[in-house]
Simulated scan of single mutants.
Amino acid sequence: MSENGPDEALRRWRLVLGRFADRSLAGCCGGDDLRRDRALERIYGESYRRRGLRLDVGPKSSRGGSEPTRMTMPEWFGEMRELFPRSTLEVVKADALSRFGMTEILDDPKALAELEPDPAILSALLAHRGRSDPAVEAKIRQVAKRVVEELTKRLRVQTSRALSGARRRGATTGLRGAARDIAWDETIRRNLRNWDPERKVLVADRLRFHAATRRHLPWRIILCIDQSGSMATSLIYSAVMAAILSTLPAVDVKLVLFDTAIVDVSDQVGDPVDVLMSVQLGGGTDIGRALAYCEQKHVATPERTVLVLVSDFCEGAPIGPMLSTVKRLAGARVKLLGLAALDEAARPSYDHATAQRLAEAGMAIAALTPEHFADWVAGHLR
């Protein structure tokens, strides 16, 4: 079979299309290719099975079938390791968990041990957490720890820079500072008498610098996070951002998770792994109740409070109480921010009509990547 000729192209198409191309591309695959096809079918055929399609029945048959016995997960993992590169195996494992919810893959010790720390994988693991045995629970914590460490490393510097302070352009000082902080206009004005006409240079013996300032006003940031099943990835990023924010000077962070119930994990805000391990994904959504809880428990100084709602805005309760609470908070001068997405892909999926109603009631709405979240919040603190 030619490496680059038409036979190779047909072989590749047969592997991509799977068993549904058997009639048109019969004979294109053999040997190890048939094993590869069966291994991929074990995962990707699941999407058809879960939609009620019977893959084992031929087009002219009303019963019976010819589908080979489905390989067990340990058998599948062994085949994948032998037939595919590691990078392919990781992609297929991620699809099995995050796209198809095939948590039985976690029952294989080898597959479990080799899971890569990735937000998408962690999302699937968190959804499985309540049904897992102690060994899987320990692995979930291990993956969560590594994911949190990577995200914290990536987001900490930008978040600290955005929220911990800013130069005050309206005031200058004679105290020494960095070259980037030189107030050039003021420095030039104060040194005009030192102009050297022969050398055509200005001798600046009195440098002026922008006065550095840090926000020492007591800001309270309340993160109110939807923990319904569709919000797993947002929860991961929110927990990491809450931990980073809690390390900043003069910022007090409260963290509240909700579906139809409310879990206040403000005492765990410095440990995002513990926060994630306390999450119970699923259930309905009662945004109004969660906002009312934040108002009653955590809004002490409204004009120095930022309340960030991270949700898909799919309210399961009557919308009236939610809008009333938002209007009341806005009237009290609480800064209200509604975040429709907090993952790095910025592919928001949310109820646009409800988001519009929230905006009309006084909540700023955005769909942002984590890198832009800190700048957005900082903009509302200035």
Rank of each mutant, 00 (worst) to 15 (best):
S2A: 05
N4V: 01
D7L: 06
L10C: 07
R12E: 15
W13N: 13
S24L: 10
S24C: 03
C28G: 04
E46C: 06
D56N: 13
G58I: 01
S61M: 10
S62N: 08
G65H: 10
E67G: 06
E79A: 08
L83I: 03
L97Y: 12
E104N: 12
P119K: 05
R131Y: 03
S132E: 14
D133G: 13
K145Q: 14
T152K: 15
V157P: 05
S164W: 03
A166D: 14
G174E: 15
R208Y: 13
T213S: 06
L217D: 15
C224A: 06
S230E: 12
A232F: 02
T233Y: 05
V240N: 09
M241W: 02
L248E: 09
V251A: 11
V251E: 09
V253N: 04
P272C: 06
M277I: 01
S278W: 00
L281D: 13
L281P: 15
G283M: 09
K297L: 10
P318N: 13
P321K: 11
M322H: 11
K327T: 01
V334H: 02
L336F: 10
L336M: 14
L336E: 09
A346Q: 15
D351S: 15
Q356G: 11
L358E: 03
A361V: 06
M363S: 08
E371Q: 14
A374F: 00
D375Y: 01
V377C: 08
V377T: 08
